[in-house]
Amino acid sequence: MSQFLSLKNVEKRFPIPGKDDYIAVTDVNLEIKKNEIISIIGHSGCGKSTLLNMISGLDLQTEGSIVLNEKEITGPGPERAVVFQNHSLLPWLSVYENIEMAVKKVMPKLNSAELRERVEKYVSMVNLDHAKDKMPGEISGGMKQRVGIARALSINPEVLLMDEPFGALDSLTRANLQEHLMRIQQSVENTVIIITHDIDEAVLLSDKVVMMTNGPEATIGEILEVNLERPRKRVELQHDEEYIRCREAILSFLYEKFAKEDE
């Protein structure tokens, strides 16, 4: 399969008034295949979100190019759905309406029966049928994040971008959502790029782990291939040699090669 999403010599500078520009990331080169799950890991402040925002088009690179399906990315679009760290559901719309709003906008040609069917399909996909008429304020953080994922998937994106989607959740809820994500990914099949701080999450979920060096001028340090069969079972993996090798590679990258001195 040829490259699907490719980043070439991507750089992002932030102008700082009265000072030199801050070069957050530089010289980022990355080729991503269709249906791959990629995670990006790195210390806080290294530029993971910056990188993801450039892929989503919410922020543009200052140098280099990002190409999806042979088209240069020049702004945000529904083929690159984003799951935000803080879910960002619209609090005045119910679970159902939050998803409906997205589907309606992206697929205006659906008639009302098709629309309802589609929205309900994605509500069910994240097992929220019982909560579909609840307001975001009435459901737990994990449920909100599931709605966020359902909303992102409901518009049939080619790439699903997730910025620490489970960062704000406790570890049990987090594990639960990881299972959800893996199960959904098996059936939906789209490309996923997920930012995480969590080494186990990175290994468990991804085909490739992109490790970033520290900023300023952060770039990709190593790319680790995770050669584990799917579906993956977290308990069995704990003793799997490949799993352990991947974990150690990331640990050594983050805490030996690119340890963060301060903080």
Partner: peptide, 24 residues
């Protein structure tokens, strides 16, 4: 974040006003 949601979905300025700004 709400505006980012609107941007990803490519809302027109009018849709932004009616669907995001006014409810807030």
């Amino acid at each position: 974040d709400y505006m980012n949601v609107a941007k990803v979905l490519q809302f027109t300025p009018m849709e932004k006003v009616v669907q995001i700004i006014l409810p807030v």
